[in-house]
Write a protein that binds this DNA or RNA. Structure first.
Lengths: 207, 207
DNA sequence: GCAGTTACGCTACGGGTCGTAGCGAAAGAT
DNA sequence: ATCTTTCGCTACGACCCGTAGCGTAACTGC
C-alpha cells in the first residue's frame, strides 16, 4: 500500500462502517488499466469508477481528483524496486537502472508519471505527494548503492551531502529521458554504456 | 517560427485570402501567457482564443488541438539556444546547460513541456512533432560541442554513433529531472558539479 | 439486540469545455 | 468584378466535472 491517500479525519475513527480495502485496490487497479487503454488525457473518473465496480462518489471520498489518484496508482508500480547486491558498483548500478527502466517501459507508468509531474509544477501539495511516494523511494536506492560501494572501497567517503542528489538526478533523468523523450528502450546495451559513462566520464577511453 | 503548424492543403495555394501571420503570433503568445497563469490542465482553447483576440474557430483551423498548439508555443522558447565557444569542453558544457536550465526555469516551459511529452507517449505524430521542433535542435548542440572538443584534442574521435544519443539523454535528462522533479534550481554551482561528474565520472576525486 | 456512526450505491443536477456547423463579411488573387 | 479562402460570430449536442440527496449496508459500543 502507498499510504498517501486521504486519512478519513484527524485520527482515523474506530466507529462506523470501515472503508473497503477491496475498493481501494480495485480503484487503483482500474486506474492503471484505464491509463493503459486511454492514456492520461482521456481518462475520466467516471470511467475508472465503472471499471472498479464502485460508485463515482466512493472514488471522490478517497481522492481529491485525477492527479492524486494517478499518483497513488503509479506509485504502487515502484513498490518492487530494490537494489541488488551484485558485488561491484558497476553491476549494482546496472541492476537498479534496469529495474527502473522496466517500470518505465510499462504504458501505465509512461503516460501517468510524466503527466502528474507536469501537474506538480503548479501544485506544491501534489509535488510533495510524488516526492514521498515515488521519488524518495528511488533516492534511497542510490544512497544504499553508494554506501555499499564505499564499504567495498570503490568510492571515496563523500563529504558533500548534495552529491547524492546530483547522482540521483543524473541517473533517473537519463533513464526517463531515454525512454519517454527519445522513446528508445533502455535495454542492457544502453545501460552498460550509461554505467560506463557514469563511472569514468567522457574522458574515459571510448568503446 | 517553428514550421510545424498545419499546411493549409497539399501545396499552399496562392489564391484566396491569406492567413494572418499576426494571428499566428498572437495565438502562440497567448498560449504561453495562459500556460503561465493557468498551467496546462486548466488551459482552454476558448480562453486562448479570447486572449489572442481571435475567434475560437480560427484557432481550430490551424491546430488540431491543445497538444499541437502547446508544442509549437513552447518550441519557440528554444529558438534562442546556441552553444557558446568558450575555449574548453567543460566551459562549453556549462554554458549550454545553463542556457537549457534558464529556459526550463520559465513557468510556461515547465508546465507545458512535460505535459506534451506525457501526451506523446500515446501519440506518435505528436512525439515526432516534439522531436523535430524541440529535441533535435538541442541534440545538434551536443554534436557541435563534441566536434569542437575533438578538434581541440580534448576528446578522442568517436566511432560509435550512438554515443551522442547517450550523452544527450544524460545531459537533458539530468537538467529536466533536477528542475522539474527535484524542483531545485540548476544554478551555477549545480552545473559545475554536474559538468565535473560528466567529465570524470564517479571515480574522479570528490570535492 | 439496539442505537449511533460512517461508508456505500444510485440518481440527478448545474456548470464548464469540447469540437463543429452555418452564416455573412473581409481580404487578397486573377 | 469575380472567385477563393479566411475571419468573426453564434449556436449547438456531447461529454465530463464535482456535489447533493437519499435509502441502504456494515461495523461499534452500550
Amino acid at each position: 500500500m502507498v499510504g498517501g491517500m486521504q486519512s478519513r479525519t484527524p485520527a482515523s475513527r474506530a466507529t462506523g462502517r470501515p472503508r473497503s480495502a477491496t475498493a481501494d485496490a480495485a480503484i487503483l487497479a482500474a486506474t492503471r488499466e484505464a491509463l493503459v487503454e486511454l492514456g492520461w488525457s482521456k481518462l475520466t473518473l467516471g470511467d475508472v469508477a465503472t471499471r472498479a465496480g464502485v460508485a463515482k462518489t466512493t472514488l471522490y471520498r478517497r481522492w481529491a481528483g485525477k492527479n492524486e489518484l494517478v499518483v497513488d496508482a503509479v506509485a504502487e508500480l515502484f513498490d518492487e524496486l530494490e537494489i541488488p547486491n551484485r558485488g561491484s558498483l558497476a553491476a549494482d548500478i546496472e541492476g537498479v537502472v534496469l529495474q527502473f527502466a522496466a517500470i518505465l517501459a510499462r504504458p501505465e507508468a509512461r503516460s501517468g508519471l510524466m503527466a502528474v509531474i507536469a501537474e506538480s509544477t503548479r501544485d506544491d501539495a501534489l509535488r510533495e505527494r510524488i516526492r514521498t511516494s515515488i521519488v524518495e523511494r528511488q533516492k534511497r536506492l542510490v544512497l544504499e548503492g553508494r554506501t555499499r560501494a564505499q564499504a567495498r572501497g570503490e568510492l571515496p567517503p563523500e563529504s558533500d551531502p548534495t552529491a547524492v542528489d546530483l547522482i540521483f538526478d543524473v541517473v533517473a533523468g537519463a533513464v526517463v529521458h531515454r525512454t519517454l523523450v527519445s522513446a528508445e528502450p533502455a535495454d542492457e546495451q544502453w545501460v552498460r554504456a550509461f554505467t560506463r559513462l557514469l563511472l569514468v566520464g567522457l574522458g574515459g577511453a571510448a568503446g
